[in-house]
């Protein structure tokens, strides 16, 4: 009992003023901070995760470029090489995988017991979901933005303004997918389901997202699937902005862009779709987290 209790006997430790909103914000911060700390500490993972995009750009990109003739979108006349085209897609790929994996580390936390420490704490569960989503978002953004240093090597010019425009777009894509990851994790009991998620959700999402090929002139069924893939709405604006400085006519860029019924989607609309996707999925994750014991 402190001295205060003598002066205010009624307040005797029955009501500690617990500001739940402040507590939740603190929890979000530390959950986010832990993820960044672990990401930063694991330098090898950082290096290893750059290997895959490089492999895609150098081997896959060069290989495919040489077999794409001048009759295609990537002919000499258009002025756009395949590597230039896929470069923003590979940034998107990095963001996609890092965001989902980052957020899904909840499943690892559950496996190794740490999640228990978090879930029994006197904090609201929604803060856990939000903290994890933000952690995944940040990791994915760093991972995606690191790849911008490769721009000169693939013949893409970036101005400061372009980079400034890329950051929020990368953030939106990362947030949408990290929320997706948190939602998946909230439904997974163990690491067993992980392969299934990888093969049946993440890989199709990546292939259908327009990261590797333009989403125009596809068979009907595939056109539908690519438009249902949320990642498409995050990668398309990224591509348009990245390529805007490279001396390509806007007609060429638009021809490669995401369309619905032949209409090119404006970037703000695409951003809106991605954000809405993220918010809805995070909402589902919060509900799932609150429900489970």
């Amino acid at each position: 009992m402190s001295v205060e209790t003598a002066t205010k006997p009624m307040a005797a430790d029955l009501t500690i003023p617990v500001d739940t909103r402040a507590a939740s914000l603190r929890a979000i911060y530390i959950i986010w901070y832990r993820d960044i700390l672990r990401y930063w500490r694991d330098r090898w993972r950082l290096v290893a995760s750059l290997a895959q995009p490089l492999l895609f750009l150098i081997v896959f990109g060069s290989g495919l470029s040489s077999s794409l003739g001048s009759g295609t979108l990537f002919g000499a006349r258009g002025g756009l090489s395949y590597i230039q085209f896929m470069y923003p897609g590979i940034i998107g790929m990095s963001i996609l995988f890092t965001a989902i994996f980052g957020a899904m580390s909840i499943v690892w936390d559950r496996e190794f017991g740490f999640l228990k420490e978090v879930l029994v704490a006197p904090i609201d569960r929604w803060a856990v979901a939000v903290g994890k989503a933000l952690g995944g978002t940040t990791q994915a953004m760093i991972q995606g933005l690191i790849l911008l240093v490769l721009a000169p090597f693939v013949g893409v010019k970036l101005s400061v303004l372009t980079v400034l425009a890329i950051i929020p777009l990368a953030a939106v894509l990362a947030f949408g997918l990290a929320s997706f990851g948190v939602m998946l994790a909230s439904m997974m009991k163990s690491l067993q389901g992980f392969q299934v998620v990888m093969n049946f959700l993440m890989m199709p999402m990546f292939f259908l997202s327009g990261a590797l090929f333009p989403l125009t002139g596809l068979p009907g069924w595939m056109t539908v699937l690519t438009r249902l893939d949320p990642a498409s709405y995050g990668i398309d604006p990224l591509r348009r902005v990245v390529l805007s400085d490279s001396g390509l006519s806007s007609a060429v860029v638009d021809r490669l862009g995401l369309t619905i019924n032949g209409h090119v989607l404006p970037i703000p609309l695409e951003v809106g779709v991605m954000l809405a996707f993220g918010v809805v999925l995070l909402g589902i994750a919060v509900v799932m987290f609150q429900r489970r014991d």
């Binding site: 603190r26 929890a27 911060y29 530390i30 959950i31 832990r34 700390l37 672990r38 500490r41 694991d42 936390d109 190794f112 017991g113 740490f114 420490e117 978090v118 704490a121 006197p122 904090i123």
Partner: peptide, 17 residues
Amino acid sequence: LDDQLTGRENLEFHAFI
């Protein structure tokens, strides 16, 4: 415990939540 964090970091995490 989070065994990738240090002892102090584990305690800091707890202090926050």
